[in-house]
Amino acid sequence: MPVQGRVVISELYCKGCELCVGACPQEVLRLSTERITSKGYHPAELAGEGCTGCGICAVVCPEAAITVYRQVIRRSTAAVGA
């Protein structure tokens, strides 16, 4: 199962430039057609399942508007029969 992630896009900063939408390898970002920011932009939002928390959107975001969260899988070797 791929790692699950999610992004939170701050509407204080987002200007709806779509660079994250164009860069997202999972194609799970889009501009909201319903919400509008105080500056009058349609902000980017996560649309549907599939975000892996890869952070590419944050790398290209000119506004540092994106916080990226990701599931963490910690692998450890346990002694058998313990």
Binding site: G5, R6, G53, A65, Y69, Q71, I73, R74, R75, V80
Partner: peptide, 17 residues
């Protein structure tokens, strides 16, 4: 055996200080 422990989530990127 390898045990996989899934921590709910962690911040991997946020706005710099």
């Amino acid at each position: 055996m390898v045990v996989e422990q899934i921590v709910p989530e962690e911040i991997v990127y946020q706005r710099p200080r």
